[in-house]
Amino acid sequence: MKQFFSFSIILLACITSFAQRQTYDVLTYDLPKGWQQKEVNGGKQLMVADKSTGGYAIALLIKSTATRGPVNDNFGYYWNKMVKATVNVSGEPTMQDTVNDNGWEIVSGNADYTDGANAGNATLLSASGGGQTTAVVLMTNTNKFQKDLVALIHSLSLSKAGKNETGNTNGGTANTANNNSVAALTGLWVDYGLEKNAWQQYTAGYLRKEYSFNADGTYSFRKKNFLTSATEIYFVYETGTYAVIGNQLIITPKKGRTEFWSKPKSLKNNEWGSFKRSENHKLEKVIYDFEILEDPNYSNSILLRPGKATVRDGGQFNASDDPYNFHYSFRKLESLIDNPPGFRK
């Protein structure tokens, strides 16, 4: 992947003031001619693609939130959630030295990646300051849009860092609920993701998993994957008990099943085909370190740290030295996971 220029050096050299044409949250930028942009969950996506060759370039501007800790911790969080969860990176990112600008600490890193038959380069810039953190993700699999990317990078600027509405100061951490208890956990916690194609465009497919913690110390876990790239629907259902001891969450499953279903003839992602088969479902007791994070812009989230890959949460594709951190967001609305026909608990 040496043919791809190093974004990180350019990024750190070019976070300077520029004519303000468009603003998103704490970031200002110029949109290159011919690029499309749209609001996505937690950010704004800028994109251009060449359908004849499959070449693309993407920039994701992430909305600022309360900092999760030092700048390197924030970088690690964004790298795992926004890069590694999307494509298969070749290894640990090549890091650049931290720089300071307008009250922000800025660190960046990049790595080559593969995404199916595509190969490219991903760069992440993470900025922390005034109790806030934000980031910019850049991904491309071609040199065709190099000039556009350079122009976009040169146009980036950050507003002056200041205290956020939670009152944190630079170097602080996101508010953590200090009542780690059954009462604090009660409710629905979800991790919903959308499938992307080779051009990094969203499809009708999705990957959804969720915990429902009940006040009586019981739980249910469900997972449903409906992918346009797969021929079957994947469904998991598990129930058991849980306990909270200090900052540890102990989940003990009692029963569960893993099933595969055909897709409906309509191919609608909210319908089911017929039952195909089931496979042995491993009941795995796991002790997690956990914390509940308060987010001023979105709902609270729970961070689970099992220290290993798990049957429920996954993680088998993480690098051997990568921490196993799993984030689930609190959901006030009904679940988006529907049960298959004839479902019985």
Rank of each mutant, 00 (worst) to 15 (best):
residue 161 A to F: 12
residue 162 G to N: 06
residue 163 K to Q: 07
residue 164 N to M: 02
residue 165 E to N: 06
residue 165 E to I: 03
residue 166 T to D: 09
residue 167 G to K: 13
residue 167 G to F: 08
residue 167 G to N: 12
residue 167 G to I: 07
residue 168 N to E: 09
residue 170 N to S: 10
residue 170 N to W: 03
residue 170 N to E: 06
residue 172 G to M: 07
residue 173 T to M: 09
residue 173 T to E: 09
residue 174 A to H: 05
residue 176 T to F: 01
residue 176 T to N: 04
residue 177 A to E: 08
residue 179 N to Y: 00
residue 179 N to W: 00
residue 180 N to D: 01
residue 182 V to W: 07
residue 183 A to Y: 05
residue 184 A to C: 02
residue 184 A to H: 04
residue 184 A to R: 07
residue 185 L to K: 05
residue 185 L to M: 11
residue 186 T to K: 14
residue 187 G to E: 07
residue 188 L to V: 04
residue 189 W to L: 10
residue 189 W to K: 10
residue 191 D to I: 06
residue 192 Y to W: 08
residue 192 Y to H: 13
residue 193 G to R: 15
residue 194 L to T: 04
residue 195 E to Q: 08
residue 196 K to N: 14
residue 198 A to C: 02
residue 200 Q to L: 15
residue 202 Y to D: 12
residue 202 Y to W: 11
residue 202 Y to A: 12
residue 204 A to G: 08
residue 206 Y to W: 11
residue 207 L to H: 08
residue 209 K to M: 11
residue 214 N to Q: 15
residue 214 N to G: 11
residue 215 A to L: 14
residue 216 D to N: 15
residue 216 D to G: 11
residue 217 G to H: 11
residue 220 S to M: 10
residue 220 S to F: 12
residue 224 K to L: 08
residue 225 N to Y: 07
residue 225 N to W: 04
residue 227 L to P: 00
residue 228 T to M: 10
residue 228 T to S: 04
residue 229 S to P: 08
residue 229 S to Q: 13
residue 230 A to V: 01
residue 230 A to H: 05
residue 230 A to D: 08
residue 230 A to Y: 05
residue 230 A to R: 09
residue 231 T to P: 00
residue 231 T to Y: 00
residue 231 T to R: 00
residue 232 E to C: 01
